[in-house]
Nucleic acid binder design. Structure first.
Length: 116
DNA sequence: TAGGCCATCTGGTCCT
DNA sequence: AGGACCAGATGGCCTA
């Protein structure tokens, strides 16, 4: 019947969205979360993934420029220091033993326009 | 209580 | 035809 097909379609859609959400969870686990007590929203997860990828891409580009260099830590200290990157808007800057913190992979919730 | 985030239902569109 | 994908509507839950 029609009602039966509707229910089946609802169940498929539910499963589809659940698959999407497990994908979001897997993404949350590999995206930086420093100083975030609660889990990132879907939108925040995507934005953080974007800035994370950008930052890593940037690091790769730097590494390529210094391709023949041997001492990685000197590169790290020289070029990825805290003040070379945008300040992290919302995060509390606790404990500063962390060289790669929010300042490096900063996601800024505000400046991104939702629509264009 | 308003706003943010979310899950679900639903009908439309496109693909197989 | 039937499934996948999508966006709009709706209601629940939580927090400032």
């Amino acid at each position: 019947s029609a009602a039966r097909r509707r229910l089946a379609a609802n169940a498929r859609e539910r499963r589809r969205m659940q698959g999407l959400n497990t994908a979001f969870d897997r993404l949350r686990r590999v995206v930086p979360q420093w100083g975030q007590d609660k889990k990132l929203s879907k939108y925040e997860t995507l934005q953080m993934a974007l800035s994370y990828i950008m930052a890593l891409t940037r690091i790769l580009a730097e590494a390529e420029r210094f391709g023949s260099e041997r001492d990685w830590s000197s590169l790290h200290c020289e070029h990825f220091g805290r003040d070379h990157y945008l300040a992290f808007a919302g995060a509390k800057l606790q404990g500063d033993g962390e060289p790669y913190g929010p300042r490096l992979f900063g996601f800024q919730p505000e400046p991104f326009p939702m629509a264009s």
